[in-house]
Design a binder for these strands. Structure first.
Lengths: 238, 238
DNA sequence: TTTTGCTTGATTGTGTACAAAACGCTCGCA
DNA sequence: TGCGAGCGTTTTGTACACAATCAAGCAAAA
């Protein structure tokens, strides 16, 4: 596709570690690299044709964003957010995305509204595709909203949280029905368009609640056992 | 306390780049390194007795947190947040710190209340000292609150934003009167203690508003002039 | 048979060397 | 005297090599 070429040019011109960073990030979010997968610097570097130095930089960045875990002398692996992590992440999303809506109310141009609607149309079209692409698109809707605020900090945090949410959904989430996400997104756009501040905020709150519920309902079986053990181990100073 | 010792051992034993990271961060927040100061990898490494590799890691991390700017092939320098950056940062702080208060309401133990009061006492005691230490302590109060939520994500973001706020205050802020900060902190603790949710949230909102005003009111004289020039120059493609 | 200790292999942490790019300086020219 | 080009120096970007650490497998003893 065209974007690949453009990205490749940018990367080679701007920085290689960015390229590796983006590649790994996409691989993680596409679930090509499942949660918990080890990420040895050597193999990745060899596979992508760069030195370990570059890979290390990319891994450090991903670690900073919470997408991988980086334990000293033990290497990196794709993060496995605990249920508690998940609750924390969604709580902060709740707060920040309400701010997004609050910032956007009454300031969206017709063109921007159309842009949002076009995105949701794409979500609707991808409904029949596989789950991961659908989760991806649903997440990008939130990132797009954040981008429209033109608040860099807000955009960065929302982007980060949406990425981590994708990971969580792929770990714990029930099968994910895109239908409700799409309809909720449409309602939100309508409220934003009409300038109904309270209604729009309430819709966003409810929407994130729905995602949270979908994310945390499952996953109480095999995953909690090792976590419990880890808690005990930590108390012993291990 | 015991944790301090443990942390220190961990630091020296576990990783050098952490040490450099912390050193640079403190230097920036203490205004030992003024905004805009160039940070050559070589000099820093030589000064701190580590190789460029380590320094580079620390710089990358600081860049991720917005404390330094890292332009390709041009090196790092202490960040100079624009007034717009400042507005963005405080807007997000507003939102997140309200979440902190909302999370904490009704869940603080008497011991934690005492801990908060002790901190504010320290703020009051440092009132006569120099400005930077005072700003520092006032910021740490907010970090302490975030820590009490036990929400890692929230803590990380608040910490980051408080750091950047310190930088902003040192750049644009008027002389900073610690008195009002202290009294506002005390009121907030009281409201938290009594479990008055709405009142506490309102106090936090008002408090951040006050900080924002203090931060952005000044700085229209000597600092805006070069900025204005830069804007003109950019329009000319320079 | 199970457990403990050692040894080996693999992987990360760090320093250093070389290549490329940007900055400052001097020199030449109008 | 002012301006621009060319060159040398400084600084960053990258690769690689060596040291340190961890995990696994094997052997030996209880």
């Amino acid at each position: 596709m065209a974007s690949t070429l453009r990205d490749k040019n940018q990367k080679s011109a701007v920085s290689k570690s960015d390229a590796v960073y983006r590649t790994l990030k996409r691989a993680i979010l596409d679930q090509a690299l499942a949660a918990g997968t080890k990420l040895p610097e050597d193999s990745i570097g060899e596979r992508l044709g760069v030195s370990r130095t570059i890979v290390r930089q990319a891994l450090a960045r991903l670690n900073g964003e919470g997408l991988i875990e980086l334990r000293p002398h033990k290497g990196a692996c794709v993060a496995q957010p605990s249920l508690e992590d998940a609750r924390h992440i969604f709580a902060v999303r709740q707060s920040l995305e309400t701010l997004v809506v609050d910032t956007l109310i009454g300031k969206l141009t017709p063109q921007q509204i159309r842009q949002l609607e076009a995105h949701v149309d794409a979500e609707g079209a991808a409904r029949t595709n596989n789950t991961s692409a659908s989760i991806q698109l649903a997440g990008e809707f939130h990132v797009l909203l954040a981008k429209l605020t033109e608040n860099d900090v807000l955009l960065r945090y929302v982007t980060e949280l949406v990425s981590r949410s994708s990971l969580i959904l792929s770990l714990y989430g029930r099968p994910h029905s895109p239908d409700c996400a799409v309809s909720e997104h449409r309602e939100l756009i309508a409220a934003l368009d009409k300038g109904e501040r309270e209604h729009a905020c309430e819709l966003m709150r409810h929407h994130i609640d729905a995602i949270t519920t979908r994310a945390l309902l499952k996953g109480n079986s095999e995953k909690d056992f090792p976590d419990l053990l880890a808690a005990y181990a930590r108390e012993e100073g291990l």
